[in-house]
Design a protein around this nucleic acid. Structure first.
Lengths: 119, 119
DNA sequence: CTTTCATATGAACAGATGTTCATGTGTTTA
DNA sequence: TAAACACATGAACATCTGTTCATATGAAAG
């Protein structure tokens, strides 16, 4: 006999089997958290701008900052976060650090979002 | 003669024309903010769980809360946010409010993210 | 080796965000 | 009409986030 949560409505509007079915299909918690963390990267306008820029061309840090009109420090902090998420990568070239997209999914994810926003 | 930002590196590693080209292609600020706000909706695990559930089946508020093991109040607050973003919609059915996805893009956006996470 | 330049980083701070708790609202049922 | 139920909402609170400012690092040029 199943436990009765205090919060649950007396007569579930969805049948028990539907609720159970959905529960079975739900990804495990770790996956859900990873997924939310991934989308969190796209959820800040500064990071979104950086990703957009790098979709067009790889570029060094100072050029990104100058192009976007955002301080070098702010850009650098955000780049660190994006690197930790494996969305971008970088290489040294002379005095500069060249940043570029590390993941093909970035473009398709942004494209999906954009087609929604521009609908 | 173009203005020289203090922050810009002396000799841009990307040529000026590349930077200019990228600037031309960048969506306007409003679009970028909208886009970031959209992804922000997917950037919280509670909202992600709600959306996942509704991808499987429409469901009343209390069932969502019970299924996810999250308080009714927390769910309700998040539902409000998701409705404001036009991602979900609802209708009354007897005593219950039935929630459902309002946008087809939701599935494809989540699918893209999931394929990245599960890679 | 010293200076300069491009970038990274830590501390501090303000603002945003998500949850809880208490309570309000509106619908249904007795 | 009164009680019960499903849901919404506001205030308070703690936490997370993103920026700035000052400074550190490390490669390159002199």
């Amino acid at each position: 006999m199943d436990e009765k949560n205090e919060l649950m409505c007396d007569e579930p509007c969805a049948h028990e089997d539907v609720v159970g079915k959905v529960r079975d299909v739900l990804p495990d918690d770790d996956t859900l958290y990873e997924l939310a963390d991934l989308f969190k990267m796209f959820g800040d306008s500064t990071r979104m701008k950086i990703l957009f820029v790098l979709m067009e061309s790889e570029m060094c840090v100072c050029d990104i900052a100058e192009l976007l009109g955002i301080s070098q420090s702010a850009i650098s902090h955000q780049l660190r976060i994006l690197k930790q998420s494996k969305l971008i990568s970088s290489r040294r070239e002379g005095k500069n650090i060249i940043c570029f997209l590390a993941d093909d999914h970035v473009k398709s994810i942004i494209a999906q979002g954009l087609s929604h926003v521009l609908e």
